Amino acid sequence: MSDRPDDPGDVLVRVGGIVFGIGMLATVATFVPLFLDLTRLPTFAYWLSMLMPLGLLVALVGLFANARSSSRRRRARQAAATGTGTAAAG
């Protein structure tokens, strides 16, 4: 176990990775019939390929949320160390 607290974006990063993986598998599944001269998959399979960029977007949002949370904690520690109490808003 890690001693650092769970960041708010950790779940988003995990979910984004899973969605990205599903989209990657769908993309591979839609390209294989094109290269092997097999029958094309239904349109639904091509729409599943859109999960890949969606998963990347969700993971990036999670990373940005983690960065903001880390920055807030760092500022709060610095404010506590200098004895100013609360950090100035804005």
Rank of each mutant, 00 (worst) to 15 (best):
V32R: 00
T86G: 15
F44P: 07
G23N: 08
T84Q: 09
M50C: 07
D7A: 15
R4E: 14
F44I: 12
G21D: 07
V15L: 11
A87D: 14
A79R: 10
A26L: 10
V32T: 05
V61H: 03
R40D: 10
L25P: 01
F35V: 12
V11A: 14
A26V: 01
F20V: 00
T39Q: 15
L34Q: 12
P53I: 09
G62F: 00
S71I: 10
L34H: 06
A89Q: 08
L34F: 01
A81K: 04
G16M: 11
D10R: 04
N66S: 13
G85L: 07
P5C: 02
P42F: 05
N66P: 06
L41N: 03
R40L: 10
V11Q: 11
R75Y: 13
F35G: 06
D10V: 10
V15R: 07
A88P: 13
A45Q: 07
A89P: 07
T82W: 14
A45V: 14
L56W: 06
V61E: 07
S70R: 15
S69C: 14
R73P: 05
L34Y: 02
V28S: 12
G17H: 01
W47R: 13
L57I: 02
G83V: 02
V58T: 08
V19W: 01
D10I: 07
F64D: 00
A59C: 00
L51D: 04
A26K: 01
T86P: 11
P5Q: 07
I22S: 09
G83D: 02
G62C: 01
V19R: 00
T39Y: 13
G83L: 06
L56T: 02
L36C: 08
G83I: 06
D7L: 15
L56I: 01
A79I: 10
D7F: 14
A81L: 08
S71T: 13
G55D: 03
F64K: 06
A88C: 09
A80Q: 09
F31T: 07
